[in-house]
């Protein structure tokens, strides 16, 4: 079972809650996906007077583990403040830490990310850092106290899928015991299946489901793909070969023709 900061989770899919056509469709999609964690983004204007509490209570009624995020924060200070607000609003020390470095690509500012992770880990947060596939940054994040890593596989919302499978593979190889969650960039269920086949522990996605023509159907498809990829990884995948191998032996013919 997936173990994140001591919490055992039955599902390896984490689903974002933004951009759905309606909260009702969001709720149906979450159920169809069988996700056990949902992420929520806290915009500053929503926190002040608890004026968005209706949406929060709809999300809380899903009775799933909530992973608040610091989406849209561009500085360490902003991210730390947002994390603290999220802890108050949602009553959890889990935080998906985003420190955005580039407005266009929503690429993480890895320097700010390590710094913010250090501050938050010291403050007893369970930090889920949204990072790149860079191994050195990953090591720094672990050194400051992160126990989970969430590399992108492509820019947020791009739907490109794993653009550098080699880097993801190498990350899995370097950190065999750290839970690795691919966060951002997945567009299709086959992308999710692929990264799960590479041995990643879970995937986190939002746009690919929320912006599908039928978010509920797409959520179910992603749930199935994550299961398929995980089971394939555990079952041992066949490595590619150069020659064709018939699955049924052809008896009675000379072997070398």
């Amino acid at each position: 079972m997936l173990d994140l900061y001591g919490t055992k989770l039955p599902s390896r899919l984490l689903l974002g809650t933004a951009q759905y056509p309606s909260p009702a469709i969001l709720a149906d999609a979450v159920k169809a996906s069988r996700a056990s964690v949902v992420t929520v983004s806290l915009r500053r204007e929503m926190a002040g007077g608890r004026s968005g509490e209706k949406f929060w209570s709809l999300i809380q009624s899903l009775r799933l583990r909530i992973l608040p995020n610091t989406a849209g924060c561009h500085s360490v200070k902003e991210a730390v403040t947002t994390a603290q607000m999220a802890r108050d609003v949602f009553g959890t020390n889990w935080i998906k830490l985003e420190v955005i470095g580039n407005h266009d690509t929503l690429q993480p500012d890895v320097f700010g990310l390590v710094e913010a992770a250090r501050v938050l880990c010291e403050d007893d947060f369970a930090v889920f850092p949204y990072t790149t596939d860079d191994l050195v940054v990953a090591e720094r994040l672990l050194a400051v106290g992160c126990k989970v890593l969430m590399p992108w596989c492509a820019p947020i919302g791009s739907a490109l899928g794993p653009v550098n499978a080699t880097a993801l593979r190498s990350m899995r190889g370097h950190f065999p015991d750290i839970p690795l969650i691919v966060d951002a960039g997945l567009g299709r269920p086959s992308h999710a299946a692929l990264v799960m086949e590479l041995g990643f522990d879970a995937v986190l996605l939002n746009t690919a489901v929320a912006k599908a023509a039928d978010p509920v159907g797409m959520a179910r498809a992603f749930g199935n793909a994550v299961d398929a990829g995980r089971e394939a990884y555990r079952s041992g995948l066949l490595e590619p070969r150069d020659v064709a191998v018939p699955s049924t032996p052809t008896i009675g013919r000379a072997v070398f023709q």
Binding site: R43, E45, G52
Partner: peptide
């Protein structure tokens, strides 16, 4: 479109 009833 923001999930909030704040009229600030």
């Amino acid at each position: 479109m923001i999930e909030s009833r704040s009229a600030e």
